[in-house]
Design a protein around this nucleic acid. Sequence first.
DNA 1: GGGAAGGAATAAT
DNA 2: TTCCAATTATTCCTTCCC
Length: 624
Amino acid sequence: MAEMEAKGEEQDRPWQSYNTVYTNAKAGMDGVDKERVQKIVYEMSKGSKYFENEKRKEASIQQRVDSMRSHCENLTKDELSHFEKIADKRVLELEATRNLSRIWMHVDMDAFYAAVEMLENPSLRGKPLAVGSMSMICTANYEARRFGVRAAMPGFIARKLCPELSFVPPDFKKYQFYSDLARKVFQRYDPHFIATSLDEAYLDVTVICKEQGMDGREVAEELCDGVYKETGLTCSAGVAPNRLLAKVCSDINKPNGQFVLQNDRMAVMTFISSLPIRKIGGIGKVTEQILKNVLGITTCEELQQKRGYIYALFPQCSADFFLSVGLGLGKTGTPQYVPRKSMSSERTFSATSDETLLFHKLEDIAETLSNDMKKDDLYGRTLTLKIKTSTFEVRTRAVSLQRYVNSKEDILCHASKLLKAELPGSLRLIGLRMSQFNDDRIGRGVPIQRTLEEIFNSVDSSSSMTLGSNRENINAVIGCHELNANVLNDSFVDDHGSCLSNATLHSEPGNIRSSGDLPDFNHLHELEHYGDGLLDNFKIERNESSSDQHLESTNQSESNSMTSLFIEEPFCWIDDYRCSLCGVELPPDFLEERQEHSDYHLAAMIQREESGHFPEKTIQKKRS
DNA sequence: GGGAAGGAATAAT
DNA sequence: TTCCAATTATTCCTTCCC
């Protein structure tokens, strides 16, 4: 009966079930006419491709909910009691980690971008303002929020909600400037404060409280005053025994207010008891829906109460998180510096299936990503292509490379292959992400591919190859495609794990080039001056290995030289058609096939050498 | 079976 | 009139390979 009523209501007021954009979780939106906003958002979205995609997503979440519900219903008493025991044990373990000795503060600038714009242009004050564009809003001031306008809402819907809304394009240089001013104030209270974005930071104020004989509230008030004096902008602060709770607290008296939660277990548990789960950082729209619709959980207290079900339904990691939230636990230690894990660039445009245009966009994005990576001196090994179709379906395709790259050419080369595989199709977004950086110097700096160094060394020890200095043979053996170029390149991995750009080494796949288009040794010579004695290391190692009787030792005067390699019976394409080693015939335009073929021979050579079955051939190594 | 890699989903700003 | 972003991180699940 109740279900039928609900269904009838959904038919009468379909916008009620469409909760894509609207949420009252945002500060300053408590008094908003939710029904009106939902209706307008629904009317504006209805029938669009975006809307249809949202429906698909909703359906998929509903499916998850249904499946978890049935899992829940099928739990036997024994099973439930088993999971309750596990959960009870975890409660004790988690409780033992509770630390009430630190005082954490979360500071959040109020409607930051909008506030900066109003500060610089007072004529904007007192009127509804959005920072962003017709397609998307970054943030809105409190006057606009009263109409239901909020961040992550498309501008054209915001204007419908609030026709007098003004728009200002974002200016991140400005925001950075004011952010720096605010951070100078933060620094006075905690020199190791954690900035999580331009307008937010966590401060451990334990020491300053002790030193100044102040409590959390006093420090929060003083800090907010300081920020206002320094920037002319207001901020809100939350004080609590851990960061998770401090973040929740900073939102309570927004804007321009503070909230303090005492470092006391009872106070924490009381605070948590009625707190909606959606207020917790890490619990978003989907998780909220799942917890509510599967287990009827809406408050943090219930996360603790229904812990048996939670451990039965969720993976350990998630269950532990939910339980710790239910206990009011959060991080209290100062985190170590965490190096960046990925870097990306993406662009939205009006949907098109014009491949020339799409590859043009891809090139632009590859260039942006490459430039960004170069700024931070990053080289990555995993490239991910992200696309969004005209129907808003998002897909990602990744490839792990043989070596670390950051040049536009390398990125574009691999990205093009990934994109090609997804076409034809109409796209509205293309993005590229690079990950698996070589910045930790341990392990990851070592290329997957064996280096020439290693090959030399192992070969030297087997005394079975001849190394020479014939340019053509370098090309012949190394081959002209990427895998082989990698081997060459990987010899130049520095102690930072960085790898030289292969701009001078990269060559077209498949073809054996005549000596005229061989890698330019002058460039290789230049490479010796790259980085912090990069090739000095290379040379030193070389010299160490040169003690081998088959190697001619080198002296410093030969420092401008380069090691090369020669194998008798070099691999080449006879008449530009037939493989010199096995006779297989491949036309010159079968680039990829030729590439694979030369790979095969090189791999076989390495394998033979590794297994000690390399045919007895004379190997010489010398520096020319 | 375990680890690495790929892919999708989720979340936060 | 415009017609739903960009960036980074994490988690979970699946697939593949050894």
